[in-house]
């Protein structure tokens, strides 16, 4: 073998090594998948789950606003609290062997209520932020949805992107991170802080604001169901993308572990997707959780 031929062999071997390693990894994954079988929920969980610090023993007390359709709202025909997250809370309670008791109150009272030990579980999908994840007032569960900051405008404004909204009258819900993010992204916009989403949308209809910043799930719901939906249009692309989860009483780390385990199971067996799909036109908020690593 000449020196030149030897060099060629060594080079070829060096180039082939990564492919060989990748091929071996792929074989391992395939073997692992075959051994695991079909996706299935993790079943080796305590039954009943020993939760030591429930607000009321034997009951899962849940704080909810009842004013954020399609996740939590009062059915006008029956007067009953319903929605995808209301059903999710009921499912969690049932799987933990607990009776679920809902307490309806304004959003402003939800977190003080958790911190004051009045509820075990709350938040109909609260977006993750550094401050919230680090808060000592409550614990956040693993994500139940992916959401994003977008806006809605009237067709007559001609606004299609956030770039086109510079200097315009921007509305949103006071304290919502979507509105706060939009205010930062559009420093020249004139902000008006409304107490809630319905009021923001009235302000948009009245011409008091040119666009309303909100989360994508709510925006799609408004565009699908608002009385004036024909006059409205989405503003994008999204300014920010968020994970959303539930909030757990800060005194109950055992409940956090239980809820996280169940949420993982609901993702695996399709329960979460089915609950969302029952009340919304799209299940994208669950389907696209992989975009943020979940």
């Amino acid at each position: 073998m000449t020196r030149k031929t030897l060099m060629k062999v060594v080079l070829a071997a060096a180039l082939a090594l990564p492919f060989a390693a990748a091929s071996a990894q792929a074989q391992d994954i395939t073997a692992f998948q075959e051994a695991l079988g079909q996706p299935k929920p993790f079943s080796n969980i305590p039954k009943p789950w020993p939760l030591k610090k429930l607000v009321t023993p034997g009951k899962l007390t849940v704080g909810t606003t009842g004013s954020s359709p399609p996740r939590t709202f009062v059915d006008p025909s029956s007067g009953q609290l319903t929605g995808s997250y209301v059903e999710l809370f009921k499912k969690i309670g049932a799987d933990l062997g607990l009776e679920v008791e809902f307490v309806r109150l304004e959003w402003a009272g939800i977190l003080p209520g958790l911190a004051a030990n009045r509820f075990d579980l709350a938040c109909d999908g609260a977006s993750w932020t550094a401050e919230r994840l680090g808060s000592s007032q409550f614990l956040m569960t693993s994500p139940t949805a992916v959401n994003a900051t977008v806006a809605i405008t009237r067709k007559d404004t001609g606004i299609k992107t956030f770039d086109a909204a510079k200097g315009k009258a921007l509305g949103g819900v006071r304290g919502e991170i979507y509105f706060e993010g939009a205010k930062k992204a559009l420093p020249t916009a004139k902000p008006t802080e409304f107490p809630g989403l319905p009021e923001s949308l009235i302000g948009l209809q009245n011409g008091q604001v040119d666009l309303v910043a909100l989360n994508l799930a709510n925006a799609l719901n408004v565009l699908a169901s608002a009385p004036n939906k024909a006059d409205l249009v989405l503003v994008g692309p999204a300014l920010e993308v968020f994970a959303q989860g539930l909030c757990v009483n800060p005194n109950q780390p055992d409940l956090l572990v239980a809820v996280n385990t169940l949420l993982g199971n609901y993702r695996t067996d399709g329960t979460l997707k089915n609950l969302i799909g029952k009340y919304a036109t799209s299940t994208a908020e669950v389907d696209l959780l992989g975009r943020i690593g979940y």
């Binding site: 402003a108 401050e131 304290g175």
Partner: peptide, 26 residues
């Protein structure tokens, strides 16, 4: 604060909603 005025209550509620610090600002 319910008609979009940034008064003391409105700003306290805003800070509470952003930080999830329910007591301090109230």
């Amino acid at each position: 604060s319910l008609v979009a005025v940034g008064d003391l209550t409105g700003e306290a509620v805003r800070a509470t909603s952003i930080t999830y610090e329910p007591f301090m600002f109230l």
